[in-house]
Design a protein around this nucleic acid. Structure first.
Lengths: 163, 163
DNA sequence: GTTAATGCAAAGCATTTGCACACGT
DNA sequence: ACGTGTGCAAATGCTTTGCATTAAC
């Protein structure tokens, strides 16, 4: 890695860690070695690792970390807005007999999935995007949020606060 | 349900079943009660059920169906292009320290997830869509396909053939 | 000193697999 | 008859939970 790029990378990671420290203080969460190490690892990579891949990667840095901790810490990061969990609200496969192109909105509270009519959203044009040789079979929009019913029940409770 | 709507619904379901029969014959797959019942159930609903929800729903229609069969039949339907599996390529949570809006392309073969720069895709405008009171926190495009590497390995093998 | 976080082992779900039997063709 | 599909039970894999111990504030 060229020197300059490496410096930028280090800056990025340390600013991420600083942000975490700030948000942890705001929410009376402890600053632990595990949280720092996991965030450093996650910020240093762009491959969207699974919890287990992070667990494997930090073994040599902290001996004796448990998988459990990795899962818990990552969940905390998501709630603190420091990381995103992708492609998976509630890790269950859902099926749809409607194979025509349309989009989905998933409610984080009740797990309901509603359809969004494709005609009402401008066509997604992937042509301009750099897909690095990716051959796209299917492509759709996934919105994540709170449905009408759950919205009226709890104002969209976010566990932790941050700006 | 109004009479007319019910007729349309029944037509839709039976045409789905006919399509399945056609594609099963094309691929030397047997026409079984289970396949018919599961497809009828899936086509009659718009709530994107999980395998287990379908399993529960068909209990009174075929006593003694097994969960296993429901999973297997649904998988077959996906391969026959009769149904879609949504929000879940490989049911594993993946994390991303980059919380800025961007999109993802997931490879069905190697499970790799690559980023698509949001700037290169026209902004998704959900305003026109009928979201039925849904409060969207986050919204992104998920593309599913074959990455460059896997594309060169196997030509994008599809298990079954259909038009 | 309190409160919160960690590690361990065990439990919990969703999903898959191996194998014998039953069914569709 | 033959090949496929099904059901069962057990296995697998990811993730969560309860509880005692340890670390952070």
């Amino acid at each position: 890695m060229p020197e300059k790029q490496q410096h930028q990378q280090e800056n990025y990671i340390s600013s991420k860690v600083k942000l975490m420290e700030e948000r942890c203080r705001q929410n009376r969460l402890s600053l632990t070695v595990q949280r720092r190490t996991i965030l450093e690892n996650l910020s240093s990579r762009t491959d969207h690792p699974t919890a287990d891949q992070i667990y494997a990667a930090i073994q040599d840095r902290i001996t004796g970390v448990s998988r459990t901790t990795v899962y818990r810490v990552l969940e905390t990061f998501v709630q603190l807005g420091l990381a995103k969990k992708i492609s998976n609200p509630e890790a269950k496969a859902r099926f749809d007999a409607d194979t025509s192109r349309h989009h989905h909105a998933a409610c984080v509270a009740c797990e309901k999935v509603i359809d969004i009519d494709a005609g009402l959203i401008a066509d997604i044009d992937l042509k301009a995007a750099d897909l690095d040789g990716f051959d796209v079979f299917d492509c759709s929009v996934v919105a994540v949020g709170l449905c009408k019913d759950c919205r009226s029940k709890d104002g969209g409770a976010r566990s932790f606060k941050f700006n």
